[in-house]
Design a protein around this nucleic acid. Sequence first.
DNA 1: CTATGGCACGGATT
DNA 2: AATCCGTGCCATAG
Length: 469
Amino acid sequence: MPRTMTTQVQSASQRQMPAAHLTRTMQLLEKTCTDLDSELSNEINDNPALEMVDEMRCPDCKRVIRTFPCQICLNQHGAAGPIVYVAPRRQNHSAASDSEEYLSNDNRIRNPESLAEHVLKQVAPSLDKQERGVAEYILARLDEHGFLLEHTAEIASYLRVRISTVKKVLELLRRADPVGIASENVTECLLTQLEVLDKDGMGNPLAHDLLTEFWEQLGRRDFGAIARKRHVSVESVKLAAQFIKRNLSPYPSQAHWNNAESASGRYFRPDVEVQKNPHAEDGPLVVQVFTAARGSLRVNPTVRDMVKRIEEPEKKDEWSAYLERAALFVKCMRQRDNAMRRIVRLIVKRQPAFILGDDSDLIPMTRAELAEELELHESTISRAVASKTICLPNGRIIPLSLFFDRSLAVRAAVRKIVNDEEKAMTDEQIATKLVDYGYKVARRTVAKYRSMLGILPANLRARQLPRAA
DNA sequence: CTATGGCACGGATT
DNA sequence: AATCCGTGCCATAG
């Protein structure tokens, strides 16, 4: 009787797979690798049948390997296309040394310290001992998005320090690198980021009011109402909203800004990383898709064996349920990783020029196209691409969705044209010039791109070239 | 009169 | 179904 039970449970879980659990896979697919981390640790915590073993396996040759990418497969690979690995995400903790070897350029952006350490390092110099204690406490109490869960007063009383001290520390923390960290809520976080941008002279005057006064309308995208109350145009409201979306990140723990200009090294953990082939200059690109944690996830075989021996039906059921859930989770996770891998592979395959070059090399493509080629549903692509970021070989971190920006290349051309112009060109002239580059866009559209790029209209763009010799 | 910005509509994308 | 994006047309500033 015990035996049959087990087999039933197992086969049942496999047959059910398609319907209900596809949605689970989808949920996982939507998650950033950072989010995936917490999801995973939750699951492991309350499911004893699930375990994470500290070993990495090459997804292609299945060998256990020490570092990604797998050197063996790397060497065998022809020039067929990019090599894409699902790699465990580099851990925060002490693993500083061994992971560095395959991270070529530019480690401004990534160093394997924890977020808390990273922030603390920045603020520590300007704090005294007591304040530092407060900072440490605060950083330890952040949720997975980087928000502060406790109120100032609570912290103060718990630590027996003055409220003003806590406030002071908070002020500093929020301005530290993942800007907006330790904010109490999304609005506050966005405001801090905005403030910092303002100081660098690349703010947007309307954005502030949008966040404070019109938060609700902004959520509903009721731009008209905002425009009326503020006596400004709907267009400028839209632009401000766009500004917010593009340049601010609601969750400090995953701040990303793609704005071309602010090249200063920002700290961020991408979900995908592309590198040039370390072994051959012109070899295929090597891509890592990060998944949660380190090592590989599996159903704990010891538990599985143990369950077979349990006699009491009650306990047996309980454990079988654990096993089933574990198996399911592992499966969904693999499926998720695999989907990510296929999608990213295709993206990289299609856009090598953009990855190695600049904005102007982006070839227009749509999620739908990829969906068709991969025989996935287009919403799958959307989920996989939304809210994820990729680190290019030059160190630039951009949202994966930028690959689907229809006008990026055109905007790049506009910027180039304006930069090279002898004397200020009107939008009309720019539009004409764009034809030479193979883009045909309406004059009105040029105007839009211009304002997106923060370029002033022609009449305000007096050229100071004359002085040359 | 010319160059731009405002608004709204329609088709494409998600 | 909800959004995004490019455009055309019109108003206004210079």
